[in-house]
Structure formats: structure tokens, C-alpha cells
Design a protein around this nucleic acid. Sequence first.
DNA 1: GTGAAAGCGCTAACAT
DNA 2: ATGTTAGCGCTTTCAC
Lengths: 349, 349
Amino acid sequence: MGASSRDSHARAATLHDVAQRAGVAVSTASRALTGRRRVSPRLVRRVQSAASALDYSPNVAARSLRLSRTMTLGLIVPKVSNPGFFDFLEGVSSGIEEHGYSLMVTVARGDPHHYRTLIERLHERRMDGIFLVTPPEMPDTSRALEAADTPTLALWKGPASLPLLTSTEEAAIGRAVERLAELGHRRILYLGLPESVPSIRVTWLEQAAHRAGLAVTAVMIPHRRPEQPLQACIEHALAGPDGATALFVDLGLVPALMHLLTARGLRVPADVSLIAFGESPWTLELGLPLASISHTMQALGTAAAAVMIAWLKGERPAPLITVGAGEWIERASIGPAARASRQGIDRVQ
Amino acid sequence: MGASSRDSHARAATLHDVAQRAGVAVSTASRALTGRRRVSPRLVRRVQSAASALDYSPNVAARSLRLSRTMTLGLIVPKVSNPGFFDFLEGVSSGIEEHGYSLMVTVARGDPHHYRTLIERLHERRMDGIFLVTPPEMPDTSRALEAADTPTLALWKGPASLPLLTSTEEAAIGRAVERLAELGHRRILYLGLPESVPSIRVTWLEQAAHRAGLAVTAVMIPHRRPEQPLQACIEHALAGPDGATALFVDLGLVPALMHLLTARGLRVPADVSLIAFGESPWTLELGLPLASISHTMQALGTAAAAVMIAWLKGERPAPLITVGAGEWIERASIGPAARASRQGIDRVQ
DNA sequence: GTGAAAGCGCTAACAT
DNA sequence: ATGTTAGCGCTTTCAC
């Protein structure tokens, strides 16, 4: 133990201690440290050195009580294992941190009851603002939120009463679908993992396909031992003269899918076009130039942070904000619809 | 707006308001609500109904100030995009939540300076405990922690002054390596992503290999456009009579690797044995029974939570705690060392 | 069993 | 520019 380390049983130094050591009043010490009002430079120095001598660390709880502001934001996320989710968290965290805010994170189970509990919990802790991520099928939780009267920003989707932040992923999907239409594709197969957060994707994809005159078959692969194995799904969907010629898949399914396609002798994009939701550097550098709807979760996080910070400064956000975090990236995994090889595919089945 | 919703400009009800409405003293109201001392059932009911009528929500900041306990735990994690990290977070979160604690999450950039800043920040907020995850190459941050005098638990690795929580992954790796030795393998190639959190894996792997008399080539694939593309790496490592016959890879590399191996006509496990760090249901169900060192991050999270809760109850943790969260799972992707097909592999190069 | 009052550490009026 | 004081909302002695 160095001489400077305090006895671990001594209570932490308070502003009072600092003021006393510097020979000034507590209010002066407060002003000197926070800089919120003019104090003579001489005293500022004295207070500062007293503070550092005592290892003074302001008590945020006391400050919060006094100012009715906790400088803390809450984040409620559903319990999903989306690979990109940590990036989102990081975006939010770094975005608010530089403005002096901290982040309180709670992970909700699926049920609305738990959501309500967590909202209450954050309310008791008097969050200055809340980021709310609800699973798509979540019923209304707005009552619990109303009571709290806390600036709350919904991500991806949420109750109509809340400002909503989404990304340009929808537009990107639209562009991808249009491109497929140009290439002569007529039917798309979507393979998704149920626990991927933005399952609005499916809706977006369906709408875009409708506009472009394409048909969509959406298949959510259940998490545990699917009754209809993925393999059967795909073969069925790709088969026949009306079979899908293009595949949209969650990135997590790509390895399995590639394996399966290779095993069946189907080539990308000669036999089937492939578009992934999400990017991974490893799919790119290795002879698999995978076209994708890239979605930088981190960008969405920082955007959310920025909107919230502005809100706390009095600038109420628009009801719907779209962030440029989604992008259509065309790569060699898509090509003209493989009408010619239909027969070959039929044989597979 | 329902009749019960308060005017959004009215300040939140305080305990004083509740007491007044129930016709009791604030102290009685406090006791009735917290149940920390005996209050007549009649009054308890009166206070409770007054509280719910006023939508009373206790102010945690005030309580913290009074009790010198925030009921909040801090988590510091390095800025890495490890897929399983969110699971860990979830484990910690749910583990502490049921004991009434909340979680404050901060994401650190690589540098020690930022770590210190974040630790200070958490200290100002008077966390009751801190979970610390440092990247392996992080220099000592213990001075900042000492000052805080807050129960701090290190995960995976950390300064010697702190109790450390690791998993049985090390043992699992040992078992995997022994099995490979049995199967006649002599050289292992490890392919890792640099940003995977527990890069102590490499150390563990090397130690285990040494014990079993095997050689290890560890290659960390740089994130951006590697000068030595993965492809060249692998071909070089697998080639020659002394080439590696078994591959340990991070799960994120599996798709790329599979593609590459398939393209080169190398079969698993006939030509090369494959072991992944991590599990994904999609690699299993689809003709790719991938042997793995499975590591349930969530289990590690809940374990960390449990240790911390116990600590806060006065039960100081052992300096080193090993959690059974890592497991060696043998599957068909490993087999006897492919001495016979050496020539075929050489031809590939 | 209940009430009155002190005080946790801080900031912002209000005085000087 | 600096000091004095009230009070943020809560729990806990201390009296009764």
C-alpha cells in the first residue's frame, strides 16, 4: 500500500472535506469543481489540489437527487442472440458517453410482464431517457411508459406513441429486389432465424417484392430441431418451374446453406443467386463474394444516442427517423435467373 | 389520457405525499413499504393503496444516498465484436436482476487511459461491485481500482490483485488435444480472429499441445485485408509431410474455411480434422457435425453474477474460480490423422 | 407501533 | 467573488 492510498475503512472524501482542506465554503468548492460559475483562479487551484489530495470523487447519487437528473440512460433489449447486437450496444454506449451519460442495460425475457417490471425498475432509478427495443410480436407496453414520463426512443419498431428510429435497411432491400427483378428472377426464398432482432425484414422484403412484381416464400427456421429440416425446405422451394431462383438468408445461415448447396451440386450464382442479411469480412475475402444487405448496427446505435442527446436538450425527435445504416451491396453471388438449369435443379429433388 | 394518469408537469409523488394521503408519518410509510420493521397491517394496507393511487415510485438516488448502496453493478468490457458476448451480458444481467441489482454497462476502447476513465466514472456512481473484462494485452489498471475500494471481479484474465473468474475451457481444450494425439495427429493449426475475447485460448492451446507432445502453429487472421490471405496461410500450414493435420478455428472462420477446403477438394475429416471454438446450431443439423470447444457465455455470466452477489453478502471469493462453462464436444469432423493423403494435399499447393 | 427529526452529499438561491 | 443555508427524497435513530 502506497502512502497515498486511503485506509479502506475510511469513508470516501466528500465535498465538505475538500472545502475544509482548501479553506473555503462547500459552495465555493462545488463551483470551483463544476465550473458552473466564476471562481477566482487562485481558489480554483486550491480546491482542485485539495480534491486530488483527498482522492475526491463526487457522489453522483447526491448530485442526481439535488438536480433531478441522473445523467443515466436506460436500455431495454429483448433476450435475443443477434450477433450484431453488441455492436449496437457499443454504438449507443460511446455515443452517450462523450456527453457524460452512462448506460443502464436490462435484458428482457419475451413476456410483456417482464418488460413492465424492467420499465418500472428504470423509472425508480429515474433514467433521463430510455432506449426501447421490443421484439416484433410484443403487445403494447405504452401504459407503463406513459406513467414514467421519460423520453423514450423505440428502435426498429415500437408502440405508435413513441418516436421510432429505423434504418435505411428497408430501402436497401427494395433496391436489392429491384435488381433481382431486372435479372429476370420471379420468386425469392427468404430463410430467417427467428431470433434475429429486425424480423420486420420479412415485411419489408414482402412489400418490396410486391412492388417489383416478385413472389416471396418466407421460411423461418425454428431454433430447435426443425420438423422440416432446412434441407427439405430449400429443395422444395427451389424445385419446379416456379421455384425460387434467388435466396435471401440471415448471415448465420450462410455456412450451412453453402454446405448444402455445394453438396447438391448447385453453384452460386449460376444456379441460384444469394443475398445475405449482414456482412462478415470472412465471407468476402475467400472466393465467396456475397451480395448483402449490410447493416451496421453500430451506426444505428450512435444515431440513437445522438437523437436522444438532442431530445434531452429540448429538441423533440420526429415520430419516425430513418438512419442510413442499411445498404445494398451488390456482389458476384447474384446473377441472371437460372431458367436454363431448372431441369438440373429438379433432378436434385 | 385516462383519469388516472398524472399531469406530465406534476412532479413525481414522493414518500411524503404517500404518507400524507395515508394519514401517517413518512417514517411509517417508509417502514410499511419496505417492510423492514413491523407496522400494523391496517396501516400497511392504507399506505400501499395510497402509494398505488399516487403511482408512487421510490427514488433510488435518494435511497442510495441514505444507505450508501446503489444496488447497481458496473460492467466494463472491451470493444470487441465477439458474437457470444451478448449472451454473457444476458447471463450477468439476469443473474443480478433477481437479487434487485441493476447493471451499468460501459464499453472500453483498447487503451488503458480509457479504462481508467470508465473506472472513475463507475466509482463516481458508487457501484456496489464491478465486473471487469480486460483484453489480454491490457497493462495494469489496478491502481485506479484500488482507490475505488469496490468489490471487483475480473473475467477471463486480469490483474493479480483481483479475484479471477475463468471457465473450464482450458480443460476442454486439453481434452481435445489429447484426443487428437490419440488419433495420430502431430501438428495443429490454430486460426483465430484477433478480436475474439478470450485470446488466452492460444496460450491454453499451446500449453495443452506441449503436454501432449504436439506442435502448434497459431495464426491470427488480421481484420482488414490480410497481407497473407487466409488461403495462403492454410495451404502453407497443411502442406508438406510435417504439415498440420488438424485445425482449430474460431466459429466465425468456419464458413470461409469450409468453402476454401471444399474448393481445394479437401474433405473433413478424411483429409483434415476440424475443431471449432464455439457452437452454432446451424453447423450441426446440416451434414457438418462439427467437433467443438463449446463455451456457453451465458453460464459464465450467471456464474459471475452469483459470485458477485455472494461477495456483496460478505463471502469473499477465492482468488481463482473456474466455471464449468467450457466443454469438449467430439463430433464427426475429427478423425485419424491423414498421413495417407499427404501427397494429395501437397499437390494442392 | 408510531411520530418527530436528523442527515446522507450535493447544488442553488440568497445574502454579503 | 465568496459564505450561509435550505432542501432534493429517503431511512433510521431516538423518543413516546
